Simulated assay, not measured.
Amino acid sequence: MNSSTPKIGFDRFIQLDWAAAALNVRAGLAGLADLNALLDAAELGMEAKKKTRTVLNRLWLEPRSELTDFADRGAAIHEMQPDIPVSALCWGMSVATYPFFGKVAEFVGRLSAIQCDCASAEVHRRMSEAYGEREGTRRMTNMVIQSQGSWGAVERVEKGRRVIRLAPTVIDNDEVTAWLIEAAVRYSSKPVSLSSLQSLPVLFPFALTRPLGYVVSKSANLNICAEGPSAQLVALR
């Protein structure tokens, strides 16, 4: 994991409309006053609002330098193609920005792959193994799962004890498909097998229906490289 990347940072519940408002600001479709008004309407306390803004700043408003171009391309997609689900763009940016968010998504995706649901306790156990039994890990994992529920990816049932994977959002746009794949590669911090792209756990809320080998080969930001006689990997250019 890149040392400049915070291990934990997505420590607040983020409603989809808050993340979408931050995306609108980056795309030039709204101003900071609109985002602040939305947070004010949520009646967050001063400290909660400050911490929420910190998450949104890192997500869209003030991304890390190595993610600035990635964020700009996501915002451009949103500006030019308003029919693209905003949840896909916010999910991709979260995965690329916050490894903790991505790890929760990966575990939920893996654990719910067969029966479309999993126990929250199992997600917490896996996160503790990955991040240690440190203070805040359980709380932040809950924040991420709650946010993913707001974004239409999962539903929490049995008083939060189980997580149900909801029907995936179909993505049939080449540009968005390539951008989401790039988000997954950035999250992985290493090349990803081309054959695995169709079922990447970290992208479980989305059904990528385009021919992925073709989409990757046409991307200016992704590259296909060979590993051995038959394996192909997708890497950043």
Rank of each mutant, 00 (worst) to 15 (best):
N142E: 12
L208C: 06
T209L: 15
L16Y: 02
L233E: 13
R53D: 06
V163Y: 06
I14K: 14
A130T: 11
C90L: 04
K103I: 11
R12L: 10
M1V: 08
V108Q: 06
R12Q: 13
Y187V: 05
L180C: 03
A22D: 00
T97S: 02
R139G: 13
P205V: 09
M80W: 10
G9K: 09
L111A: 09
G45C: 04
V25D: 03
T209H: 15
D172P: 05
M46K: 15
T68V: 15
I114Q: 15
S112Q: 03
A27L: 01
L208Q: 06
P191R: 08
G149Y: 10
S189D: 12
V104R: 03
M46Y: 12
L194Q: 10
L212P: 14
R12K: 13
R161I: 04
A88W: 10
N57S: 09
L197M: 02
V144M: 11
L23K: 00
I145N: 01
S199H: 14
E129D: 15
W60R: 02
L59C: 01
L35Q: 00
S147F: 03
A71N: 03
C225F: 14
G228R: 14
M46S: 15
M46F: 12
M93F: 00
A167S: 13
L38S: 10
W91F: 05
K49E: 12
L200I: 08
P211E: 01
P201D: 08
A119T: 07
L89R: 07
W18C: 06
E79H: 02
Q81Y: 04
N142G: 13
P82K: 02
P6M: 14
I84W: 00
V55T: 03
Q81V: 04
R156V: 14
V215S: 13
L89E: 02
I171E: 11
E129Q: 15
R162I: 08
F101G: 07
T68D: 15
R210D: 06
C118E: 08
L222E: 03
M93A: 06
D117A: 10
Q146R: 11
M46V: 14
P99G: 10
P211Y: 00
T97Q: 02
A130I: 05
S147R: 08
R156L: 14
V108Y: 07
Q115W: 09
F206G: 07
T54M: 14
Q198Y: 13
L23M: 05
S150F: 15
G136T: 12
I14A: 11
S219K: 13
K49L: 11
A207C: 09
L222Q: 06
V104F: 00
L89Q: 06
M143F: 15
L39Y: 07
A20E: 03
K190Q: 13
G74A: 05
A48P: 07
L233V: 11
V86A: 05
N57Q: 09
N36D: 13
E133N: 12
Q115T: 14
